[in-house]
Every structure is written in C-alpha cells, then in structure tokens.
Write a protein that binds this DNA or RNA. Structure first.
Lengths: 107, 107
DNA sequence: TTTTATTATCGTAATATTGCAATATTACAT
DNA sequence: ATGTAATATTGCAATATTACGATAATAAAA
C-alpha cells in the first residue's frame, strides 16, 4: 500500500498527526522561524535565506498556509506573509495536552 | 529530487523536524497513547487495538524506539515497551521553546 | 495597455513512507 | 535440543513527499 489508513483513528489522533506533519520538514520550520523574525516578510527574501528554489518555497508556504498558520495580504508587488499567532497557540495547546496526558507506568 | 536537503539547515531546525516526524503519523500517536494507558504493554495488544498488521506496528515501534522514546525489556514471551518519559519531556521542551520563540510582528 | 516584479501552478523525476505477506529471529518452556 | 508464542526483518507494491524547470497568474507601475 503506502497510504495512511486515516479512517481507523480517532479525530484527535489524526489532528495531532496532521499538525505534526507541518513541522516535520526543516524547510517549513525554517520558514516559520524566518517569518517570525521579520516585521514584514516578502517571499523572495525566504528564497534568498533558505537554499531552495522559489517553487519549492511556495509549495511549503502552501502547506503552512493550508494549516491556517499564515495570514497574508498584498503590499505592493510583494506578498506579506504573517504568522497567525492564535492558530499557532492552538497548535501549541494541542501538543501540550497530548504531551501532558502521556505518562509512563511500567518498567 | 524528492529528498530533503538536510545539510542546508541549522541543527536545531533539523532537530525540531526530526521530532515532529515521529508524531506525524496517526499510528505512532495512537501507539504512544495506548502504551501510556497501560501498566504493562505487550506488542500484540497494540495489533489488536489498532487495525494494522503486526509487521506494520513493529515498524512504527522501531521509529518511536529509534527516537529514544521507548524503554523495553522482556517479560516472558512478551516484550514490554514503556515510554521513556524523560525523553518525552525533552521533546516537549524542544517544541515549547520553538513555539514560545515564535511571534507575529506584522499585518 | 504593456511592462515589470513577484508569487502560484503544472509537469515531471527522484526519494521517502506506508503497509503487508512471507520469513527469520528471539526467548521461554518442555 | 525441540516446540511454541511472540516480535523483528525482508521484499515488494502503492502512495506521498520533495524539489525544480517551465510557465501562468497577479498586482502595481510606466
């Protein structure tokens, strides 16, 4: 096969996995860190910063955006991407509640 | 192409991505949750619990184990897998420091 | 409206991941 | 040593992801 059998898991488990997937590629982590450091972010700056082509960066940005982690609006010719910090905190909460409800009772 | 260009990123960025990858599949999240709920865990119980074959579960367990998240020792014929809670907390810290150092300054 | 600068999409190739059947290995009991 | 029950490994097929060149779309400026 090769496809994940998503239908056999509970919703909250799929949610955690889906969120984790966003951070599961270093390019996306690097992009998020870079945007976070800027006041205004222009996509082309990201291409200069990270050693990947413009289409590849754009593709990663789409993944981040589809997860609801970006807010964007146009300023001149450049698209200003900003982090949707509320969504970001939501993700943090999901992770922490997963981490906090996991314990070790044996061995 | 298709392979991630790991060499172009800083170590801490690769660390975050590597950790995230462990949680980026629902089977692994489900396995961790299940082990967490048990006092003693036998691998075959996991197969019964989750609708995947024994080799597939074993494969996912290897990924979790390679990340240092498990402690295991044999008890009779059954392998007792337990969560390495210290390593788990390490992961939580890495995530939280990433989340906490990310902010939104524009838009 | 044409040009220019920027970002998005398409098409394609390469690598990675997922899943399982078959088989091997392991640890314990007899 | 042999048998038994459990987990690990191997081999393979299918799907997903990553990356980039070529091209299209978009928005502002000339």
């Amino acid at each position: 096969m090769g496809a994940s059998k998503l239908d056999i898991y509970k919703t909250d488990i799929n949610t955690i996995a889906t969120i984790a997937k966003v951070f599961a590629h270093p390019a996306r982590v690097a992009i998020l860190q870079f945007i976070s450091k800027q006041d205004n972010c222009i996509c082309n700056d990201i291409v200069d910063e990270i050693g990947l082509s413009q289409p590849t960066i754009s593709q990663h940005l789409k993944v981040i955006n589809d997860a609801g982690l970006l807010k964007g609006n146009y300023k001149g010719k450049s698209l200003c991407y900003c982090i949707n910090i509320n969504r970001f905190r939501e993700f943090q909460d999901v992770f922490n509640s997963f981490f906090n409800t996991t314990s070790s009772n044996c061995c």
